[in-house]
Simulated assay, not measured.
Amino acid sequence: MDTLLSLRVLDAVAELKSFVGAAERLEMSPAMATKHVKHIEARLKARLLNRTSRSVSLTEAGSIYLQRMRPLLEGLDEAEAQISQTGVRPSGRLRVSLPVWMATVSFASLVTRYGEQYPDVVLELDFSARQIGLVEEGFDLAIRVAMSLEPGLIARKLGLVQFKMVASPAFLEKHEPPETIEALENSPFLAYSQVSRDGHLRLPFGEGHAEVQFKPVLISSNEAFLMQCACEGMGYTILPQWLVDGELAAGHLVHVLGNEVRPAAPLHAVYPDRSFMPAKLRSFLDFLVSAGFPEKMS
């Protein structure tokens, strides 16, 4: 059998979780799609798919195998397109890991526009505070503020994310609003666990920086929960402006020392270091940049 075609069948079955769906996409019968998958399994002497009457899923061996094979298949498509001077239409599933605070109306609008322009790409977006294993878990891309690069990954700076220090009006009625950064010392603080569990922060102030030791009263890895607790009057917190601008406009939060304290952090796109970039990944990154992401998202 055509081993290359068998690999494409396996990839389609894994993506669609269906032999029937893969067969329709590749214009063959379900029985022939099954034969192609069995051909690859016989070559490897390993079971690559779990099959039941209701579902199809990758085995551990199948997951490992496809993680290695998909880049080769995508590279072959692009090489053939380059030689034939035809464009590769971005398609397939694009798995992206993003921070929780990016799940906003503005980003939803951006994703919708991307989907309209590239209808053959299925975006699988994982909004999570955890640090994912990009290659091990089969992600194509991660968008991160703070990061340490694992071997085999490369990063592309997308821009800066602005942060704001906020508190609720009710909290500021009980605690005198600070007029100087020194007045924040030992103040109740809602700490993001990935940055400052102990409440100690080095903040940009004026032309330099200032050290502040807050008193943590809550530590969480979920920025949205920190914002809700801030709205309830629990303490100060520092969060991305995307997340808090709506609450500021509604009067649920107040921007504290906004003229003096303006933290910012670079936002990176992190992806596997390959000799090529799949069309679906390139199209998404180029779309983000052309849309002015992240600066124009507030």
Rank of each mutant, 00 (worst) to 15 (best):
E124T: 02
G199N: 01
F127W: 07
A61V: 14
G159N: 05
A170I: 11
L149Y: 06
L153S: 02
V111D: 00
I238Y: 08
A264T: 15
M147G: 01
S221F: 04
P177E: 07
S109W: 12
K35S: 09
I64R: 08
F287H: 07
K174C: 10
A249W: 11
S57E: 13
G246D: 12
F107Q: 05
A142V: 00
D77R: 09
E173A: 10
D198A: 08
P216N: 01
Y114S: 03
T52D: 09
R144W: 04
D2Y: 04
H175F: 02
L7H: 04
L58K: 03
D126R: 10
Q241G: 01
E185N: 05
P204C: 07
R43P: 05
D245V: 15
G292T: 15
S109K: 14
M227C: 06
G258E: 07
V122Y: 08
A155S: 05
H252M: 09
L190Y: 03
M102A: 00
E295T: 15
G251Y: 07
Q67A: 11
P99C: 03
L281V: 01
V88F: 10
V217L: 06
L190I: 02
K17C: 08
R274L: 12
D198Q: 02
P216C: 01
P151F: 03
S148T: 05
M69V: 14
N50I: 11
G199L: 01
L48Y: 06
L184H: 01
A269K: 14
Q228L: 13
G115S: 14
P266L: 09
V135G: 10
D120S: 02
R47Q: 11
N222V: 15
S6G: 08
T52F: 06
L190D: 07
E182P: 06
S298V: 15
P151G: 07
D198S: 11
K157S: 10
D198N: 07
S91G: 05
S106C: 06
E232A: 13
R43T: 13
I154P: 00
F284I: 00
L94E: 04
V96C: 04
S91F: 13
